[in-house]
Design a protein around this nucleic acid. Structure first.
Length: 305
DNA sequence: TTCCAGGGTAACG
DNA sequence: CGTTACCATGGA
């Protein structure tokens, strides 16, 4: 059973090779595959796991369903919406490029990587867990921890000798103990933070819908940082990659610091004041500027296997 | 071996 | 309030 769920007319600019460049930045990624320029991942549709293939043909993105529930209108709509959100296809990037022409540190990146869109993390629980896992450890280890988390507590589909994993649900994680998370080398702190988030999401006191309901990203940020384990960096990371606030700005981000350091040609990290001064040219597009600066750093966190 | 890593909390002055 | 110790382990 294989059927096409949707054909998405690609916005301009869009570069599939730039997107794949980002998606393949770690060989240790466990939630999707890239093979022959096609992208494969499992997503949950109406509480059922569905295996999706994304193919770029001419000016369209074709979304195929390879395994899972039969095609209905709502399945097609959900899958179509997921891909649009994941690749940020409904955003007009032309104002971003025009504005970056005035920033010497990012304008070159904008030209070199035209058509790169922020790869999102549409699932709020996944976004929060990934951010918490990534706190204060190098990215290679973060990918290892994520893989252990997913392969220990997630759901797996095996097809044609490959494994396709779904991120664990908040319900599954909320029932765990700190000790169980420590057994996969989470620190006690990370374990407590992730359990807290899982419990809130299971209770319904934390959800993407409730964070977005006011339509005010600043209000969402205030709600997020009230939660233990979520500071300004984590809140802005989630605003950037899940809630899709183009002005989210994780200014404490070490990757951002290192990218700016290289582009300034200095042998120390920029201060927060220096970052604020540079970012004053990015108003409204801080998330995109940050993502493009991350793109300039791939060589520093490539996984060795 | 040393230093740092896509931070955050809690305890201190 | 601003500063500091601590978390804890892998990777380079």
């Amino acid at each position: 059973m294989k059927y096409k769920a949707s054909s998405i007319q690609l916005p301009e600019p869009f570069s599939m090779s730039e997107m794949i460049g980002y998606l393949t930045r770690s060989a240790n990624e466990c939630l999707f595959y890239v093979e022959a320029d096609n992208v494969y991942r499992m997503i949950r549709v109406e509480n059922e796991p569905v295996l999706v293939e994304i193919t770029c043909r001419n000016d369209e993105l074709e979304v195929w369903i390879l395994d899972g529930i039969p095609p209905t209108k709502s399945v097609r709509v959900t899958v179509d919406g997921y891909v649009r959100d994941w690749f940020d296809l409904d955003r007009d990037l032309r104002p971003f490029y025009r504005q970056m022409e005035h920033c010497p540190y990012v304008s070159g990146l904008g030209r070199d990587h035209t058509g790169l869109r922020i790869v999102g993390v549409p699932d709020l629980f996944e976004a929060l867990c990934w951010a918490i896992v990534g706190q204060q450890i190098n990215l290679a280890f973060a990918y290892t921890l994520k893989r252990r988390f997913v392969e220990t507590f997630g759901e797996c589909l095996r097809l044609n000798g490959k494994e396709f994993w779904l991120f664990p649900s908040p319900e599954t994680i909320a029932n765990l103990s700190v000790a169980e998370l420590r057994s996969i080398q989470f620190t006690s702190r990370k374990s407590e933070y992730v359990l807290e988030v899982a419990k809130r999401m299971t209770e319904g006191t934390l959800s993407k819908t409730s964070l977005m309901q006011s339509g005010d990203f600043k209000a969402a940020e205030r709600d997020l940082v009230k939660i233990r384990g979520i500071g300004p960096w984590t809140a802005n990371y989630v605003l950037m990659r899940c809630l899709r606030d183009p002005s989210a700005f994780p200014i404490e981000d070490v990757g951002l610091h290192n990218a700016v350091k290289e582009r300034l040609g200095i042998n120390r990290k920029p201060t927060l004041d220096e970052l604020r001064a540079i970012a004053s040219k990015w108003t409204g597009w801080e998330a995109y500027a940050t993502f493009y600066l991350w793109r300039s750093l791939y060589h520093t966190f490539r996984c060795r296997d």
